[in-house]
């Protein structure tokens, strides 16, 4: 007598538990992010009511007169981050290409280790070094801050670029070498198209770090209020730096203004990241074989 075929198996208890854990972890992150955004926005409202759109457009920041215009700090953040990127990207790509393409095997590991070591130096150390070594020549200025930020983001951009570049498949490199390409020509033909999406991502992560860096920037940027200038040697201020510098002595409205700055910084970094990921996605799609 044949019994009914039993295909119920061992049950999927473990699978369900794993699923619950994964979904739970993902939810916690979202909830925390949501709470941060909600609290910060709520605390930022008083200054926005007080200043209106002027908060975003005014160039005057004078807590004593209850005048809070964020524009100089937005400028300082973007300008120092831009200086940092201009310096850090060529250096990082150069180091990454050297490590992956040129360095002899026995040099590779020490180099990787050295660059990664740069990433664990506390930012206050970079800031103090900037005061001691750069400020005597460059003053406390946009440029000094930009250079310090560049040094701080070089390890991030370098190690991400190195990993991206190393994923270039050997057959793609051999395609170029097989046609008589030199190493540099191979890098342009094989490594670059394969890696550019990831490299943009690496640069954007560096940019995010540079815009958000607080203490090093606060130490060397000069803490000048209301400076919007392209003069790299002028003292200025950035959003995170002004928050760190003024929080201690701020009254209620002033605190609200600093919180609003933080929200603004948050929004700007999110926009930068969204733009970056769309660039990465588009460039991936192109190399994956859609029409050029």
């Amino acid at each position: 007598m044949a019994r009914a075929l039993d295909l119920r198996g061992r049950g999927d208890g473990a699978d369900r538990a794993f699923r619950g854990l994964a979904v739970g972890a993902a939810t916690v992150v979202l909830v925390v992010l949501g709470l941060i955004a909600a609290t910060m926005t709520r605390r930022a409202l008083p200054v926005l009511e007080h200043m209106g759109p002027g908060f975003f457009t005014s160039t005057r920041w004078s807590p004593a007169d209850e005048e809070f215009g964020a524009l100089p700090f937005v400028w300082g953040t973007l300008y120092t981050a831009a200086i940092a990127i201009v310096i850090a990207v060529p250096v990082s790509l150069g180091v990454a290409l050297f490590i992956t393409q040129l360095a002899p095997q026995r040099l590779k590991r020490p180099l990787v280790y050295l660059v990664d070591l740069l990433a664990v130096v506390p930012s206050v150390v970079f800031g103090l070094w900037g005061i001691l070594v750069l400020s005597p020549h460059l003053g406390r200025s946009f440029l000094t801050a930009g250079i310090i930020l560049a040094i701080m983001i070089i390890p991030i951009i370098t190690s991400l670029s190195r990993e991206v570049i190393e994923t270039t498949p050997q057959p793609e490199k051999e395609a170029a070498y097989g046609l008589g390409a030199t190493r540099w020509e191979m890098i342009l033909a094989s490594v670059w198209p394969h890696s550019k999406g990831g490299l943009v991502g690496a640069v954007m992560l560096g940019l995010g770090r540079a815009m958000g860096e607080t203490i090093a920037a606060a130490l060397v940027i000069g803490s000048a209020l209301g400076q919007i200038t392209v003069d790299p040697l002028a003292p200025g201020n950035s959003m995170p730096a002004v928050i760190a510098n003024e929080w201690g002595e701020a009254d209620e409205l002033h605190k609200s203004a600093l919180i609003a700055l933080a929200v603004l910084l948050f929004i700007i970094t999110i926009i930068v990241n969204l733009v970056a990921s769309s660039i990465v996605r588009r460039s991936m799609a192109r190399t994956a074989g859609r029409r050029t």
Partner: peptide
């Protein structure tokens, strides 16, 4: 080569 390896161009 063994596996066709055109450039992504």
């Amino acid at each position: 080569f063994q596996k066709p390896n055109p450039f992504p161009k």
